[in-house]
């Protein structure tokens, strides 16, 4: 377990999503997982997917319980809502309070960020109130699925949130006059880059695992 974190410290928030905290002494991954009652296969699949962009054990991931996957995805949402978004906001606030006379551009960036945040929250909310319950219900009672909803509808919505995040990055890197504290801005951008990578991985698990799982059940029972 120590080797894992030393190899890639970006995995720190990922292990937290499993309820694992530091101080694991020399325990192996297997031992830590057992202690937290986590399937070590599932843990490794998620950790590897996150660590290595090329690693995507579709077959293996598809074999896990969708409940586990949904639970993991929800925890990731919590991490975004409770930690990442407030962190970005506080950095933006600092940027805004530190800029010399003309803060006009940063104010506009702030407005753009708020809009992005709204869309992201809507997207998360939609997943948690419609998509995830639908998938869980689909697995529990495939015969009584909601005929008005199909999982494929939600596939399209991902891209917009990703595009805006990328635009936010590009606007700051390319077009905003640098009147701000550069260390704070760097910190903000680094947070954005990290968040982008995290959210891509998150979307990958949704698109390649959760969606195909649901489609397979839909197809089977809709005939």
């Amino acid at each position: 377990m120590v080797t894992l974190i030393r190899t890639n410290y970006h995995l720190l928030p990922v292990i937290n999503r499993f309820g694992i905290r530091l101080g694991f002494k020399d325990k192996t991954i297997e031992e830590v997982c057992e202690l937290h009652k986590i399937s070590s296969d599932f843990f490794l699949a998620i950790v590897n997917t996150f660590h290595n962009e090329d690693y995507f054990p579709e077959e293996e991931l598809l074999s896990f319980s969708p409940h586990l996957i949904v639970q993991y995805l929800k925890r990731t949402h919590q991490y975004y809502i409770n930690y990442i978004l407030p962190k970005m906001e506080s950095l933006l606030e600092q940027l805004n309070s530190d800029c010399s006379p003309n803060c006009k551009e940063l104010k506009i960036i702030d407005a753009f960020y708020k809009r992005y945040k709204n869309e992201l929250l809507n997207h998360i909310n939609d997943e948690e109130t419609r998509v995830f319950p639908y998938v869980v219900e689909l697995i529990n009672n495939p015969r009584s699925m909601d005929p008005n909803f199909t999982i494929t509808e939600f596939e399209k919505e991902h891209s917009n949130v990703e595009i805006q995040l990328e635009d936010l990055k590009n606007l700051i890197i390319k077009y905003i006059e640098p009147v701000y504290d550069e260390n704070i801005c760097n910190e903000f951008l680094i947070t954005l880059f990290r968040f982008e990578a995290d959210i891509k991985d998150h979307a990958r698990i949704e698109d390649a695992i959760l969606v195909p799982l649901a489609i397979a059940i839909e197809d089977k029972y809709r005939g």
Binding site: K104, Q164, D167, N170, Y175
Partner: peptide, 16 residues
Amino acid sequence: LGIKSISGLTVYAIIN
């Protein structure tokens, strides 16, 4: 511009 979303383009249009 390397900017794709409508709101992103709006930001660009304002600051430029």
